[in-house]
């Protein structure tokens, strides 16, 4: 499907004149999972918001975000095709499970039958067959997390960001969900960037790891890919 790298060059975020975070140039290859770790308040979530294009205007940001060869730094969020999963699954409470998935499915898939077929396939893939008409509020945490991933993937993203996506799940579920997300991203050869403060997330991802120190210091790339 995709197969383009996510490249970040010279990214610096500041808030009210104070430097929040500065990244060394990094590139996340298709199918690779890069982990960014750091204490809370170090600007991890702001970094992801900057990559999505939803950073609050109070922040000042420098640097470029490239997907393959394309510079997406100044594109509106909806034009970037960068998917994101949050700690909360953020399924829309006014829509059914199927309607949530239809929300992600591009409008190019035309006709109710065609759209329903894609949604049914996605539900099967998430091991949630026949869940389409359910109210998302009646699903378990793990089920909701899987629907949320499917919704993001149906939108055909070119890169996937994870904002402590596994933090809310209980320990037993967490490793299963990691495998589920990482396997899907690998199958679609998406570059994945996750921020977390759980070292297990980084170990399980088995990609490169970047540690963010406190606010104001430059980040260091600790471990190369595959090491």
């Amino acid at each position: 499907m995709s197969g383009a790298a996510l490249t970040l060059s010279g990214i610096r975020l500041s808030l009210g004149g104070a430097m929040l975070l500065a990244l060394p140039p990094v590139s996340v290859a298709p199918g690779e999972i890069m982990t960014v770790m750091g204490p809370s308040g170090c600007g991890k979530s702001s970094l992801l918001a900057f990559l999505c294009g939803t950073l609050a205007p109070a922040f000042r940001a420098e640097g470029r975000v490239l997907l393959g060869g394309e510079d997406v730094t100044h594109l509106a969020p909806q034009r970037r095709r960068i998917g994101i999963l949050f700690q909360d699954d953020l399924l829309f409470p006014h829509l059914s499970v199927a309607e949530n998935l239809a929300f992600g499915l591009p409008p190019g898939v035309r006709g109710r039958a065609a759209r329903e077929a894609r949604i049914t396939a996605a539900l099967d893939d998430a091991e949630l067959p026949c869940f389409g008409s359910r109210d998302p509020a009646t699903l378990s945490g793990g089920q909701r997390a899987r629907v949320s991933l499917m919704r993001a993937l149906l939108a055909e993203p070119r890169a996937l960001l994870l904002d402590e996506a596994f933090a809310r799940l209980d320990a037993a579920l967490r490793e299963r969900m990691r495998r589920f997300v990482f396997d899907h991203a690998a199958r679609l050869s998406l570059p994945v960037l996750q921020v977390t403060h759980d070292l297990e997330d980084a170990v399980s991802a088995a990609g490169s790891l970047m540690r963010l120190p406190g606010p104001g210091c430059a980040a260091t790339l600790e471990r190369g890919p595959g090491s």
Binding site: T54, Q78, R81, I82, I84, F86, L90, G104
Partner: peptide, 11 residues
């Protein structure tokens, strides 16, 4: 947050 999700889904 709901708007941010919708925007990253291309809306």
């Amino acid at each position: 947050p709901a708007l941010a999700v919708a925007r990253t889904l291309g809306y």
